[in-house]
Design a protein around this nucleic acid. Sequence first.
DNA 1: AGATGTCCCTGGAAGC
DNA 2: TGCTTCCAGGGACATC
Length: 271
Amino acid sequence: MPELPEVEVTRRGFADRLAGARVLGVELGKPLRWPLGVDPRSLVDRAVKVVTRRGKYLLIHLDEGLLLLHLGMSGSLQFAERLPPRDVHDHFELDTTRGRLRLHDPRRFGAVVYADTLDAPVARKLLGGLGVEPLEAGFDPHRFHAALQQRRASIKQVLLAGDIVVGVGNIYASEALFMAGIRPTLRADRVSRPRALRLHAAIVQVLQKALALGGSTLRDFSSAQGESGYFQLDAMVYGREGQPCRVCGSPIKGIRQGQRSTFYCPQCQKR
DNA sequence: AGATGTCCCTGGAAGC
DNA sequence: TGCTTCCAGGGACATC
């Protein structure tokens, strides 16, 4: 599934080539998570200025308005001068003077939404509540600790919520907590300062590593048995219930928090 | 207002 | 073998 590092790698893969293009047309497949919010014909002739990222959203800035793209959990983007005919899972296509940008998304958790500006209600709704970018200077360890102090939910769920720091998905949350030696069920406000600083470093490290390896596909673990997605090779705890901890040998535990799977080592993450 | 639960959707795996 | 059921995921939204 596309996590922050994959979204960023995706962005880098087409941003420079798309910038400066002029829209020739828009093609829609089945409905995605939300409607586009504009008559697609009205986008014709607009120019693409730049493609940026905020959390897991890609922002295609036009000379007038912008498109917000989210890949959901099964979405991927292709950009090329020419593409094969659209299949049943290709639900959005932006035809431009520089090539075609196509969203392929079998599960349709993804979205393409138009907003007039970043201040438009729909943009504020989608982006307004997002926390800081973990790989930018604004992710300050002491402010991170202070923010955790305000929350009584479990540290895992607070990370996942994305309103303190974005980009820590279900896999990275378990991995970062393992690296920091923190039990996922611990209340966020009970994470001590030194341990919060360790968690901050772990988040940066796990995301940077994934970004560096981002050319490879991060696969859905349950469908990736036997496949060579890098995370299957590198996961310390995620998806390893019952298997020995790579550090201490204790069996990894699998639990559910807020309808989501969590993995941890009961020995290495005592509290 | 913060925390928790629900739902969206499909394909693959597991269970019968 | 073929059917049904379950599960994965992000995040907006409803509810407590």
